[in-house]
Design a protein around this nucleic acid. Structure first.
Lengths: 229, 229
DNA sequence: GTCATCATGTAAGCCGTTACATGATTGC
DNA sequence: GCAATCATGTAACGGCTTACATGATGAC
């Protein structure tokens, strides 16, 4: 999940580790929060595996490794961005600017597509993916949404089964019922997204493509209390 | 979190590990799912620390082993294998029946009260606690709800700040907005719970003031510490 | 000159997972 | 007899956390 988040951010622009962390926290909020203790090792891993390249403090593009580190007073110019207070002087200091490679982009696509290992939180994982969905091909994006929908449908069925248990105390019952409502709410939202996505695709493909994709599917939120999954 | 879940279940009745896992999965669903690989070590830990006691397979001092069924495999301490026969669908083999101790109950209260270490998922943690809220004293229960409300208020503020960012792409924006709505929904639900809780407390207090232990206060009703946005 | 922030990293540990190993009981 | 389920455990590992260590830069 961390790798995905990192690659997603680097998809947009080059960045150093500290900034990656800041943007993850400020922009993605709940869906990706991470500490340095896991971020930096992850960056190292990604570099080793060739998904990103690193240049020390804005060196010339093209040279990946081989950093001629000469102490803090180097005369080379500077970071291409990220200064504040307007001092145009060079060399902030030894930051490592990370840039995604083609291999990294391939890995990103693959991570977005694959189901992540079991320990991961579903909602977070999906949220993170959706936040980077703009980089996906339209049909892959639709797949992401639909896979999530299936997930939620299953959960809804489980929630309803749980709610049917008469022995629940008030608190657990309220919890389960609220959870059921939330899941229904999520599904309705997802359906809107899916619908918009399909219309968008149809519009762009004004060519025939006569595949009838009627939105009728197994389990609508509105009815059919049983027999899904 | 696992310890809390285990102690919560054992609060109600004695149980063996396999059943604990089953109930956690079937009844708590999302809020507590666990594998044997973590459950059994956790039970061992709890036993070592004195929060639970364990008895091997079968009732205490019943000993009327009507069917010996020693079969083969004598040798080492076969005596512990005492089976209880005759009970319909009853106990089967050498299980370990766990029972919570007074110390365990104290630990349970403490775990419910304390904020759990940072890595934990808020929603799951709260859900698990609420599922066992019936074992809490009324004011502790109210505290649980109010702490959760503060948490959600903070999250709502953060979500709104995030939503104010104009640079978000469609997907991220939809995500953030949906998240905001969900949080609002959660807060409204919580408020209903809190309100019900307060009314219940007032009611009980006014109707039966001849309790064995007078809880000494009307306190929390007047608090109104809602200082969110 | 000292403090907050920016910036990168390492070490230890927590809390969970899957995979593996073992064995009893029940149902067909 | 054999498979499914019940039942308990160990081993290896994964991903993330906090705490610690180090140092540069800019503001006051």
């Amino acid at each position: 999940m961390l790798d995905l988040a990192i690659l997603g951010l680097l998809h947009e622009q080059d960045m150093h580790g500290y900034e990656i962390r800041r943007r993850l926290r400020d922009e993605l909020g709940l869906f990706a929060n991470v500490s340095f203790g896991s971020l930096y090792p992850a960056l190292s891993r990604l570099e080793t595996s060739g998904a990103v390249t690193v240049t020390e403090s804005g060196g010339p593009a093209g040279s990946t490794a081989t950093i001629p580190f000469t102490g803090s007073l180097g005369g080379e110019r500077a970071g291409l961005r990220a200064r504040r207070a307007g001092s145009p002087r060079g060399t902030k200091r030894s930051r490592k600017e990370y840039r995604i490679t083609d291999q990294g982009r391939a890995l990103f696509d693959q991570l977005l597509d694959a189901d992540e290992p079991a320990g991961t939180d579903d909602a977070r994982s999906f949220g993170l993916r959706l936040a980077f969905a703009r980089y996906l091909a339209p049909q892959a994006r639709l797949g992401l949404l639909e896979r999530r929908r299936v997930q939620l449908s299953r959960r809804l069925a489980a929630d309803r089964a749980r709610a049917a248990d008469a022995r629940l105390d008030v608190y657990t019952r309220s919890l389960v019922e609220h959870g059921t409502e939330s899941t229904e709410h999520d599904i309705a939202w997802l359906d809107r997204l899916i619908e918009a996505e399909r219309q968008n695709q149809n519009q762009k493909q004004s060519t025939s493509r006569t595949e009838t994709r009627d939105p009728r599917d197994g389990d609508a939120v509105t009815a059919t209390k049983g027999t899904n999954s």
